[in-house]
Amino acid sequence: MSAVLNGVRKVGAYTYFAGACMRSAFTHGVPWDRVVSESYKVGVRSFPVLFTMALFVGSNLAIQGYAAFSTLGAGSLVGMFVALAGVREVCPLLAATMVAAKAGTEMAAQLAVMRTKEQIDAIEVMAIDPRSELVVPSIIAVMITLPALTVFTIFVSLVSAMAVAVLQLGVDQGEFLSFLVGYLSAYDLFAATLKSVVFGAIIATVSGYFGFYSERGARGVGEATNRAVVTMCIVIITLNFALTSLLYG
């Protein structure tokens, strides 16, 4: 019972924190110079790892799709499989979990260290809202860059899937593209982008919450980072089900 109450209390505290961040963006303004630097950090630095992941996720989707459909004598349907599984589900999740693991943990750890070293207190004493200075720019940056990274992930994985399907598995390029385009619509891209905006808000606010309210000391930093990444992954995967049900159900 106490664990349930504790969970409810934490959800309440997180909701209050997210609300306070929104309010501070309006009352204290947004330091746009920090939004730019955070966007660079989240976007550009996630590029190489996301490129590598997307490359091999696309290729494996092609191999698995081909293996499943070729037993039915319809190997060329791999284009449809990549469009449905890759664009609608795997790529938004892949981009979100990578950004959560890389940028989200970095944000949580950085804030926790700042808490430990009294740097957040220092900002408050300067009559500056630390949420508007440290968390709000990250929220905006992740909400802008994650959709872009998701589109990039989709593009790389589709190219890689096509390359493997055509060059390694012998699928006709025209058939692959025709099934891909036939089953992929603008609505799918809209849905993937919408998902990534929501995931971006979750990543930045969850990592911000755990970093901002971390215990002081090395243990506090470690716990904040660990709790942030576990919570982000669970919330993202759960929300993904809810969003898929809403958008395609």
């Binding site: 330091p31 950085q110 260290v113 700042m114 070293k117 009294e118 740097q119 207190d121 220092a122 004493v125 300067m126 009559a127 500056i128 200075e133």
Partner: peptide, 25 residues
């Protein structure tokens, strides 16, 4: 306020640390 360990922002240079409150206020 001068904090016990300085509470300087590691991600900024010394000059940017001192300039920070002026830039914001």
């Amino acid at each position: 306020m001068m904090f016990q360990d300085g509470a300087l922002f590691d991600s900024m240079s010394v000059g940017d640390n001192i300039a920070f409150p002026l830039q914001r206020h």
